[in-house]
Simulated assay, not measured.
Amino acid sequence: MGDPRRGHPVAGFGRVASRLERAVYRDSRAAGVLYAGLLVGGAGLAGFAVERACRGPWATALATWAVLGGTSLGREGLLMADALGRGDLEGARARLPHLCARDPKGLRADELVRATVESVAENTSDAAVAPLVWGAVAGIPGLFVYRAVNTLDAMVGYRNARYERFGWAAARLDDVMNWVPARVTGALVASFGGPGAWRVLLRDGGNHPSPNAGRCEAAFAGALGVRLGGTNSYGGLVERRPEMGDGRAPRVPDIGRAVRLSAAVTFAAAGLAAVVAWRRG
């Protein structure tokens, strides 16, 4: 169904997290552990309270909707494809922060295309498969805790002067909670993509600096027949990542293909999550 333009519960959580950051920020890991612990623990307690107070499928359905972001991810990808297809580079650069933290300033069209495909690949796990996995195994508390951790990672989980120590706990929690979902995502993508996708996933999935994102991006590269990876800039920090895949550089139509693949993987993951939850009783 997608996200509302205003009043989203995750946005409300983000505002609370911003206020708490101003209150407890110190350039130390200990402060970051306190910050993440209070917010993640609070989200877990809220999920437990909702599950106890509102038994029944509608509570689970609403909680799942609140933490899923797959539809909005696809919409943002298609908006990028539309801007790039019209040659509107400034418009595409302005939209890129809706998808990832990469610095859009001065990016060429081909770099914007690659950034979009990579973001759709990685966020298929973060925005869709991972919440479904945690909801399946831990119910509403699992949904709330996962989205809290992932939101905090997006807010403070950066390797820059301000957050390298303070954001350490949020970033490591996000790595842990996405370890299994990222591999489920890679396997589902490769299942749709065929033998070539499996080969690229197994060969290149571990080359990425993230322990999880590489599995998703490598599988997408193999399934789409494109080559991902290269030089990226994040707030002035430049990362040179190994290339994944054997194909050509991605083009604008590949964004639509990536969005459709992401949607197919999301629906497959929803089916698997329903089976797991049913088996749990």
Rank of each mutant, 00 (worst) to 15 (best):
E118L: 07
V33C: 05
Y35T: 01
L112D: 02
E217D: 02
A81K: 05
L96W: 08
G7Y: 14
N178A: 08
V265L: 07
D88K: 07
R279F: 12
L20G: 00
A154W: 04
R199L: 13
A30M: 12
A115R: 10
E122R: 02
R6Q: 15
T124E: 05
A270N: 06
V275F: 04
V145C: 13
P242E: 09
D126S: 08
P104V: 15
H8N: 01
L68S: 00
P211L: 13
R147V: 11
R93D: 06
A115T: 13
S210K: 12
V265F: 08
G230S: 10
A169M: 11
L84H: 11
Y146I: 07
G193C: 05
V189W: 05
G32H: 07
A128H: 11
L62M: 11
L39S: 00
R19I: 15
G85P: 01
L96A: 02
V276Y: 05
A148V: 12
A81I: 04
R147I: 13
L78D: 03
F13R: 10
A49Y: 08
R215C: 15
A94E: 13
S72P: 01
G157A: 13
F166W: 04
R203Y: 10
L228Y: 05
H8L: 06
Y158N: 01
G186R: 13
F13N: 03
R279P: 08
N160H: 12
